[in-house]
Amino acid sequence: MPSLVGVFDTPGPVAAAAKRLKGRGFQDLEIYAPAAFPELDDVILEKPSGVRVWTLVGGLLGVVTGYSMAIWMSLDWPIVVGGKPFASIPPYTIIGFELTILFGGIATLLGLLVVGGLPYGQFGVTDKAYDKRFSAEEFGLVVECRDRDVPEVDALLRAHEAKEVNLVEA
């Protein structure tokens, strides 16, 4: 199926056009943006990003690891000081805290890779619809559609301030 790529200067019209297209039943959409814009965040993927789960699980794993490692190791090799307990919670809070951050941070990186689908594609090959203008300051809205829908999509993109619309063969 062919794809149409609308090229835009600002994110607002991209979001508006994408929503209209979705409303008309075009589900196969993609946006290329030169920077992060909150207005584009939920246009294609409506659900909240799954990265949050990764961070949470990583952090929880970290805090459990931190405390249990310090406690278990203190019990395994006790340092006898007066009548004091071998494992003492207040100083181990620091270990628990640091590992929360460490595991949480690494899990966030992994989450970015898994949820964001990185590394993406084949090495050195970009999508056909991708253009280096989209890593300059322009936006691309890619719509996959049947041949007979091309005029409709083209008109819709142009109606939303697309400054040009290109056809990319799949």
Partner: peptide, 26 residues
Amino acid sequence: LGWQGTSRQWKSHSRAVLHLSGLATP
């Protein structure tokens, strides 16, 4: 890593940056 600025990439990137900021602050 094959970054093209797709919505999926930016969405998870913004999230990751936000979470890392939250972790890096304390």
